[in-house]
Design a protein around this nucleic acid. Sequence first.
DNA 1: CTGATTTTTTAAACTAGGTCAAGGGTACCT
DNA 2: AGGTACCCTTGACCTAGTTTAAAAAATCAG
Lengths: 194, 194
Amino acid sequence: MPTDAIIRFLENYIPVSEGEKSLIQAPFEEHVLKRRQKLLRSGEVCKAYTFVVSGCFRMYGVDDRGFEHNIQFVAENDWIADMASFYTVKASLLNIEALEASRVLQIGQADLYRLYEEVPKLNRIFKVMIEHKYIELQNRVLQNFSSTAEQRYLDFLEQYKALANRLPNTQIASYLGITPEFLSRIRKNMQTKR
Amino acid sequence: MPTDAIIRFLENYIPVSEGEKSLIQAPFEEHVLKRRQKLLRSGEVCKAYTFVVSGCFRMYGVDDRGFEHNIQFVAENDWIADMASFYTVKASLLNIEALEASRVLQIGQADLYRLYEEVPKLNRIFKVMIEHKYIELQNRVLQNFSSTAEQRYLDFLEQYKALANRLPNTQIASYLGITPEFLSRIRKNMQTKR
DNA sequence: CTGATTTTTTAAACTAGGTCAAGGGTACCT
DNA sequence: AGGTACCCTTGACCTAGTTTAAAAAATCAG
C-alpha cells in the first residue's frame, strides 16, 4: 500500500497502533504528477498537506520583476505545503512544482483537523515535524550569511549532496539567489582552483 | 503575577482551566536583564524557552568574518529560543541579546517536557505557535526576494512599524543584510524623493 | 533517430551595495 | 558638567554579482 510510507514516516517519531494506522491512512488520496506539473499556484489557497512518495518538488515565489526564487526542495518521504496559506486559508504567495515525474499522497484541511481529534498523538508528531521544518528554514537563513555565493554553493552541495545531482543548476542558482550565469562562473572557477 | 501574561498568551489559542493554569505557571522563573545582556551565547546549548514580559531582544548569528546578522527581533508577549539547539541539545550557532532593559520568564527543557505530559493541550498550542513562527520566518525569506534593499527596508517598516521606532538603524541594517552606511544612504534618498 | 526545448557556458559592459575613513550628534554614567 | 560609548551621516573608491546576447551542449518527446 502506498500509504505505508506515511506510517513508516510517522513511526520515526512515535509508534502507532494498528487501529490508528487505518484511521490515518483512510483520508489520503494518491496523485501522480508529470514533470513541470503544479501542486499549488500562487493566488490559490493551499488546500492539501502533501506527502511525497517519489519524485521531487520545488517551492518558489515570484518577485515583482517576474523572477522566480526557490525556497525549498522536497523529495521522497517528506512533506510539503504552504503552511502560511494552509493554516490561514488565504491565497498563497508560492508555487509548488514537480521537478521530476512524482507520486504523492494528499490530505485536505478538514480531514487533517478531524485526524488531529481522532488521533491526538498526531499533534505531538506534527509539532515535532514542524519544529524540524523550522530548524531547516532557519539554517537556510543562516547559510545565506556566508558572504560569498561560492561559499553558499559549497554549503548547499554539502548539505544536499544527494539532491544536488538530481537538480539542474538553474534551480540551484535560483535557490542560492544568484543568476545561472554567475553560478556557471563559480563552477568554472572551482575547477581551475583544484 | 507576572506569569499571568503567559496564561493570557495561551488563552489566545485555547482556554485553560484553573488547575492547568497553576500547573503551567509553577515552573517558570523570572529574570531581569539589562540592555546588552545575553540570554544565549553561541556555543552554549539553549536550555530555556523564554517568554518576554517586557523589553526587546535580537537573535543573531556571526559570520566567518565576524559580522553579526540579525535573524529576528522579539518584543513583549512573544517567545524566543533557538529551537535548533533547544530540541537537539546541541551547541547553538546563535546569540540572543537584550536591546532594552527587559523582564522575562523562562522554562527549562525538563520542565517543558513534563508540562507537555501534564497538560497535553499544550502540544496543540505549541504546535500552532510554532506554525506561526514558521510562517513569520518564511515571510522573512520571501521578503528578501524584493530585489532592492530600499524595498526591503520599506517592507520592514510596514511590517514592524511599532518595533522600528524602538530599534537603532544599525540593528535594522543588520536585519536587512546591508551595512549601516548603505541604510543611511537609502534613508537620505527617500527624503529627497518625497 | 531527430527536431525542439531546456540547460550550460562565455564574455563584455554595468550597477547595487560594500569598504574605509572621518566628522558630528546624542545619551548615559559618575 | 564632562567623558565615554554608541549612533548616524557623508564621500571617494572598489568589487561581487547582474545584464544582455549568443553559441555550445545536453535532454526530451514523438
